[in-house]
Amino acid sequence: MSSSRIIQAWSRIDTWLAEQATISFSALPQPATHEQIASAEQQIGVAFPSDLYASLRCHNGSGDVEILPGHTLLSAELIATDFLLAVQVSRDPYTDTYVNTQSPEWIPISGDGGGSHYVLGQLGGAQPRVGFRNELGDLDFAEGVMGACMSDLLEKAAGALAAMEVLDDFRPVVVDRELEWEME
């Protein structure tokens, strides 16, 4: 089951951070409450996939800690805020993007601070896929975009941390007890 994979991946990430990057570990948010998740779901108009729900119940995003190279995982509140911002931008007559608000086709799960996100797409399907949405609104669900599903995404991050291996052209390093990613 995907949710158990999420919980195991977070356990591996937490253990590594607690041992190697204690400041980053201390900065991770507490789990989201059921109410926080339900509020975000209501704002967007779609139930979160079980693996996203499980991740948020482990940690409500990653705060300022880049669990993924260049990206922080979004809290339930920021998932809703970033999605609604994309909706607002898509309504601008000078943009080519369209965001379906009647039946959302994707929701953001991470952000880079510049408008790009990893997203979960194909909502309502058997296994929502991880994709990438750039700051211009272009979506890419090509194979290899950080894994096929959210479980893969977190497992790749956990594995890269444990082995200090490259992930998406970046290697994890610890500087002053904080996790950082160096370009290879």
Rank of each mutant, 00 (worst) to 15 (best):
M1N: 12
R5I: 12
A9L: 11
S11Q: 13
R12L: 15
W16L: 13
L17M: 15
E19Q: 12
T22K: 14
L28E: 14
Q30K: 13
P31T: 05
Q36F: 00
Q36S: 03
I37Y: 01
Q42H: 02
V46W: 00
A47L: 00
F48C: 01
P49T: 11
S50E: 04
D51N: 12
D51I: 07
L52T: 05
L56D: 04
R57D: 01
H59Y: 07
G61H: 08
G61F: 07
I67E: 09
P69S: 15
P69Y: 13
P69Q: 14
T72R: 08
T72G: 04
L74W: 02
S75H: 06
E77Y: 01
I79P: 01
T81S: 11
F83L: 03
V87T: 03
V87D: 02
Q88P: 02
Q88R: 12
D92Y: 13
V99L: 08
P104G: 06
I107G: 00
G111W: 00
G113K: 03
A126K: 11
Q127C: 08
R129I: 13
R129T: 13
E135N: 06
G137K: 02
G137V: 01
D138G: 03
A142V: 10
A148N: 14
E155A: 06
A162C: 05
A162K: 07
A162P: 01
A163I: 02
D168L: 10
D169H: 09
R171G: 01
P172R: 04
P172I: 04
V173N: 08
V173M: 09
V173T: 11
R177E: 15
W181A: 08
E184W: 07
